[in-house]
Nucleic acid binder design. Structure first.
Lengths: 134, 134
DNA sequence: CTGAATCCATGTCGATACTG
DNA sequence: CAGTATCGACATGGATTCAG
């Protein structure tokens, strides 16, 4: 890299990342932005389910215990507005709506599973430390 | 996988993951748990900085514009209680404290950068869709 | 079946001031 | 230097009720 080590522009690994975040614009850090979207309560689970095959609204509703229609709709709408999920309405009676991952959404599965793999491998250790500290 | 396709135990990619989350215990999904910890406002940035080399409290404070001592302490404490960051106090006068990544914390850098790479590659597209939807 | 509307509890974060 | 204490604003998520 031509750029010197001034400032805090930081690499996680060997990639240059657009950090630090300018004042008041932390939401413009792409990584944190994506992270925040994916880490809310139901998003990861829904992405995972839709990664297997398309689902109808009530399929998702029934599949995820504890997920209310309100939160399901809300979460799907965010996913849709980020271009990760696609919504298709079939004008049947009663109506049915199908949700599927877009190519963009599907492309997220791989990096997510890298992190998922790390999480399942190390979660026990984290929990152990957490309790010792508590 | 011996288990059939009943239930919603889901794979992100080709890994079996401990989903779905039982009612009221979504915090026991390792992946979402890790995701939520890493995705708060300052954590990723601090992990990134500490991934380069150990830092003293005020070094971090000066490095990150907009980060208050309160949030810096808070974020570091969580990281510490999860075993990702180590805190070492030097009983000098005035006191100085150094923070560094633990091996566990360092091991997180690689899966994180996979996601980071995806984020920088696709964030523009997400933002574009987001605005079109808005 | 696929939602929308309303209200409320809790969590996250910032601002400000103070301390060993 | 390296924090703590207090307060309040805003975001997230749940419960309940209603609708096309």
């Amino acid at each position: 890299m031509s750029t010197g080590d001034t400032g805090v522009s930081a690499s996680l690994h060997d990639h240059r990342l657009p950090m630090p975040v300018p004042v008041g614009e932390y939401d413009r850090c792409p990584v944190t932005d994506v992270l925040r979207r994916v880490s809310d309560k139901w998003t990861l689970l829904l992405i995972t389910l839709l990664g297997r095959h398309p689902h109808r609204f009530n399929e998702l509703h029934r599949a995820v215990e504890g997920l209310s229609p309100r939160m399901l709709t809300r979460t799907l709408r965010v996913l849709e507005s980020d271009g990760l999920v696609e919504r298709e309405v079939f004008p049947t009676l009663p109506p049915s709506v199908e949700y599927r991952l877009t190519p963009l959404g599907a492309s997220l599965l791989e990096p997510l599973s890298a992190l998922a793999e790390w999480a399942v491998a190390h979660h026990a250790e984290i929990v152990a430390v957490r309790q010792r500290t508590a």
